[in-house]
Amino acid sequence: MGHCCCKPYNCLQCLDKTNESALVKEKELSIELANIRDEVAFNTAKCEKLQKEKEDLERRFEEELRRLGWQQQAELQELQGRLQGQFEMEMARLQEEHHSQLLRIRCQHQEQVEDITASHEAALLEMENNHTVAIAILQDDHDHKVQELISTHELEKKELEENFEKLRLSLQDQVDTLTFQSQSLRDRAHRFEEALRKNTEEQLEVVTAVQAPSTLEAWCPAQGRGFCADLLPK
């Protein structure tokens, strides 16, 4: 309640006005409270309705989610089946293509092998021909060198034989000369021995004659008497 701004004799009038104002205020508050209660009831009903709708939506969402899960599973299985079929078709195509490539590569390889074999055989034949020609050339060169060696050997042999014959003749001459000289020396030695022997005998005779003049005179022959007389002492 507000303060009274009237004079004391006017207090009742102010009080009535205050009560009237309070009643108006209370009525307004009652109306507002009723409105609030109605609004609360409306909001409560609306909230309950929304809760039911929420629960219904959640239930339908779960059902839809399960349905979508089943649908997705079915679609996945169908997709897997299609993909498996496509994979098998692609695998068969790739295998066929791979087989074709292998066959083509094998044919190319066979052709290359045949070409290489032909080239190798041609190279071998050429090498054999070159080898045969080289062997023939070497054989001719060898025969020529052998013939030259034989000729050189024959010439050297002939020269050696001639030199040997010359040396033999020279040695034979030397041998003959040495033989002659040896024979001459033997003859001289023999003569020297004979002279020495004779001289020795004569000396012995002289000694014997000195010791036995009569015997010496008897020993000396008539033709050697003069020599024996010379040996006698005077």
Rank of each mutant, 00 (worst) to 15 (best):
E96C: 09
L68M: 10
Q95R: 10
E78I: 06
R67M: 05
Q80N: 13
E78L: 12
Q77D: 14
R82Q: 07
A74R: 09
M89L: 11
E78Y: 11
Q95S: 09
E97L: 07
F87G: 15
E75R: 11
L79I: 03
Q84W: 12
A74P: 01
E75M: 10
Q95A: 08
E97Y: 04
L65Q: 04
G81Y: 11
L68K: 13
M91A: 07
E64K: 06
R82S: 08
Q95Y: 05
Q86L: 06
L94G: 03
E96N: 12
L79E: 04
G81M: 09
Q73H: 06
Q77M: 10
E90N: 09
R67W: 01
M89G: 15
F87W: 15
Q77K: 14
W70H: 11
G69S: 04
Q72T: 12
Q80E: 09
L76K: 07
L83V: 08
L76A: 08
E62L: 03
Q72A: 12
A92I: 00
E62Q: 09
Q80K: 11
Q73T: 06
R67L: 05
E62D: 12
L79W: 02
A74M: 05
E96L: 06
L94A: 06
Q95N: 08
Q77A: 14
L79V: 03
E62Y: 03
Q86E: 04
G85A: 10
Q77S: 15
E97N: 12
L83M: 13
L83I: 04
Q84S: 15
Q72V: 07
L65S: 05
E90F: 13
G85L: 03
E88L: 14
E90T: 03
Q95M: 05
E90M: 12
L83A: 13
Q80I: 03
Q80M: 08
Q86W: 03
L68Q: 13
L76W: 02
E62R: 02
E97Q: 14
R82A: 05
E63A: 13
E62I: 00
A74L: 07
L68Y: 08
Q71P: 01
E97K: 13
E63G: 10
L76N: 07
E64C: 08
L83T: 04
F87K: 15
A74K: 11
E78A: 15
E88R: 10
L76G: 06
G85S: 10
R82H: 09
M91D: 02
L76M: 06
E63F: 02
Q73S: 11
Q84P: 03
E78F: 10
E62T: 02
M89Y: 09
L94C: 03
G85Y: 04
F87S: 15
E78D: 13
Q72K: 11
L94F: 02
M89V: 14
R93I: 01
E90H: 09
Q95V: 05
L79Y: 04
E78H: 14
Q71E: 07
F87A: 15
G85K: 09
Q84Y: 15
E97H: 10
Q86H: 08
E88C: 14
E64Y: 06
G69N: 03
E97F: 05
M89T: 14
E62P: 00
G69M: 00
Q77Y: 10
L65T: 01
E88K: 11
A92Y: 02
